[in-house]
């Protein structure tokens, strides 16, 4: 633990957490450069860098900035948004399983999107449907879990129940859709970055520009204290219910906008905060490291999805799902060894 002090200012930080966060940023950037250079038309990393900073040929510029950059930026933003939402949820419910994909918010976003697909709506309408579905699910789970305040276990149980119901609804909606629409919807539900344009990235970027500062400024310190129990936090001067509501709303919105941009990509929200915690070895919600690690996971998963099977692109959700499932098994195995599960 180190301290930086000025006249009226003092900031505490952990050197290891700062180093880890910097490493995440570098890795994310490297993955971005590699992804921008790969594809049918390969471009060397050095050329990619030159193009990004304004140099390069016209052709390179067109491919890198016009064709590939929107997809990569979407991947970065989606990863960061999901991971931040996951870190907030896991901290709130004090449980590593308390992530938006477990609590039904991504299912809800999928339901919203599917309703639009069945009704034959456009891509933009689909994104709006996803946001609306996620937010509606968030409100529903909150109301179901409310009893003199919302507590961790009730939120998880209500979320799992809602999630199960919604996955049934989603299956039904898929059978009702036209064949073409159903195929498009299925790809979206798996989580995909194919053909993402600036129109997909911009709404998410705007949402994050508002929500990320809200979470970091108003909730971060309070979340640290709330990890010690609601009573302790209240005794230390935290307005527990207000912080919880703010954090929940922000996290649900982040999840919904991310799902609108790339579909309900699984496991990034679940794994990033836990991995970040293990790498920084810092207690607390680890919001900023989680966010960057989410961006790393998402860009790397996208890179892998494009190249894992030669000549065939996988939806990114398949890769994150496989990675996340493996991670969950590992968590279970190490937890069992430590006698916790």
């Amino acid at each position: 633990m180190r301290v930086l002090r000025g006249a009226a200012l003092s900031v505490r930080y952990r050197p290891r957490a700062v180093t880890a966060t910097a490493v995440f940023a570098v890795v994310a950037f490297a993955a971005v450069v590699l992804t921008l250079g790969s594809g049918d038309y390969r471009i060397a990393p050095a050329e990619v860098l030159r193009t990004l900073f304004g140099g390069g040929t016209v052709a390179d510029h067109f491919i890198v900035v016009q064709l590939r950059l929107p997809r990569v930026v979407t991947a970065l933003l989606v990863g960061a948004a999901l991971a931040l939402a996951g870190a907030v949820f896991q901290s709130l419910v004090r449980n590593p399983l308390g992530s938006p994909d477990m609590l039904g918010f991504t299912e809800g976003a999928a339901t919203g999107a599917l309703v639009v697909v069945v009704a034959g709506g456009s891509s933009a309408a689909l994104a709006c449907g996803a946001v609306a579905g996620g937010v509606a699910t968030g409100i529903g789970v909150y109301v179901l879990a409310w009893r003199r305040g919302v507590h961790g276990y009730r939120l998880i149980l209500a979320g799992i129940g809602v999630s199960a119901i919604l996955s049934g609804v989603n299956g039904y909606l898929l059978t009702k859709a036209q064949l073409m629409d159903a195929t498009r919807a299925l790809l979206w539900i798996t989580g995909s970055l194919d053909g993402r344009a600036w129109a997909d990235a911009v709404p998410l970027a705007i949402a994050m520009a508002v929500l990320v500062p809200v979470v970091l400024i108003t909730c971060s310190r309070a979340l640290h204290v709330m990890e010690m129990g609601d009573d302790t936090a209240a005794a230390l001067g935290v307005s527990v219910e207000r912080v919880r509501l703010t954090a929940l709303v922000a996290a649900v919105l982040l999840t919904s906008f991310a799902a609108a941009a790339a579909g309900p990509v699984s496991f990034v929200a679940l794994t990033s905060p836990q991995l970040a915690k293990r790498l920084t070895r810092a207690p607390g919600p680890n919001l900023i490291p989680s966010m960057l690690l989410g961006a790393v996971l998402m860009t790397c998963a996208d890179l892998a999805a494009q190249h894992a099977i030669p000549g065939r692109q996988l939806p990114v959700g398949v890769v994150t799902g496989v990675l996340g499932g493996g991670y969950l098994m590992w968590l279970l195995a190490t937890g069992r060894k430590a006698g916790r599960i």
Partner: peptide
Amino acid sequence: LLPQTSIAPDG
């Protein structure tokens, strides 16, 4: 206040 139950965060 020292409540009856407090949770020590992991680690």
